[in-house]
Design a protein around this nucleic acid. Sequence first.
DNA 1: AGATTTATTTTGACTAATCAAAATAGACGC
DNA 2: GCGTCTATTTTGATTAGTCAAAATAAATCT
Lengths: 220, 220
Amino acid sequence: MATIAVENYLKHVLLLSEGGADLVPMGALASALAVVPGTATTMVKALADEGLLEHLPRQGVRLTAEGRRVALNVLRKHRLVETFLVHVLKMDWSRVHEEAEQLEHAISDEVLDRLDALLGHPQSDPHGDPIPSAHGKLSSQVYATLATCVADRPLRIVRVTEQSAEFLQFAEQNGLLPGAALRVSDRNLPAGLVTVRRATGRSLALSLVAAGKILVEPER
Amino acid sequence: MATIAVENYLKHVLLLSEGGADLVPMGALASALAVVPGTATTMVKALADEGLLEHLPRQGVRLTAEGRRVALNVLRKHRLVETFLVHVLKMDWSRVHEEAEQLEHAISDEVLDRLDALLGHPQSDPHGDPIPSAHGKLSSQVYATLATCVADRPLRIVRVTEQSAEFLQFAEQNGLLPGAALRVSDRNLPAGLVTVRRATGRSLALSLVAAGKILVEPER
DNA sequence: AGATTTATTTTGACTAATCAAAATAGACGC
DNA sequence: GCGTCTATTTTGATTAGTCAAAATAAATCT
Ligand SMILES: [Mn+2]
Ligand SMILES: [Mn+2]
Ligand SMILES: [Mn+2]
Ligand SMILES: [Mn+2]
């Protein structure tokens, strides 16, 4: 069985290659895992020996088919656990990530399947992150963000790509949840500011960085 | 935070002292944890340095107040998780022990509390094992077993003290579940055999060893 | 091109947990 | 009381994962 550390390395390689990048640089991987670069190098070489990923020295890493399979299983556990914690145990969506970070390594495939059934086979977690299917399919749909979408059109939030409790609490308090309807009423690039108007009529200003974490699709 | 190994050592010291023994011998601890005796000695000395237990060389170990607190918290997680797996996820009672063995180290105190509330603050798990209270109280009620109780009196099963899937499946198939009504119809000590009659009228023979794992109380 | 900066790798050391096998302390038998 | 047996401890190694700091390769700048 893969250890917790191995599962974390593989999951983070998967997450970091989500943006389409073929090779994940060691620096990005090390900082995602909160280890020093040398540690990541050592570990990655061991994982490459195990056939879980490919290591191109000084360039980066890429999952093998087997490594991807393991990573998707862990990610599926993570996101289904988050969904369970929010929908069944009524935990705050800002705190479930930390919890799932541990539980993703502790639940068996059987519990995974039963949670999936209990929750009605959800396709995304409370943050809108897609849940890999039991067969290893992971939606890679690309969405616009509040920083990049066309202005003055009705939108719906589909995903919030940030895990920090602080940001998620802020988002919740301002109704920036998956499913919420809103539009971009103004975008001031020199100032780095995006103003959105919610369906309720309330207006709210966000930095471009914050706006870039809110993924949206055109309403209707 | 206590590591998984530390939590396991403390939990097993607690379980092994359940039978009233003041000192848990190293051999018993080592075999409960499936490690060689030397490993247990090394670990126990480290735990004693941490103030989690007392080690009387060549005699055994005893939990300190702090060690007991940690152990009870882990045991509470274990048994509430088992209850959740059986009552909510409908898993077979013979397989939840293995699962809980991992999950007991992965869930936070907050999830623990929410599970407890969801399940209606149960006092015992699916095997009848008492669940430590949130304040660290653990029922130490002593029960008779099918090997020791008085014969020909109506009884109710309160607990099955065995975790192996094999035994639990056998017990379930023969209706030997907590809550079941039955009586001892015959006990043949020379042969080492106990015969029980269930409320349904069915009779069943058990070895003394097997019968000793079924705890009962007088019916009504 | 040559110098400088930055990312990555290498080296050496450390911690937690474990095992195998040798040493030892007690208990038990007589 | 002395030898034997058994439980426990000690010693020396091993594995997984990590960090600090030095070495190196590659990219970038002048
Ligand atoms: Mn998460
Ligand atoms: Mn999520
Ligand atoms: Mn159990
Ligand atoms: Mn149990």
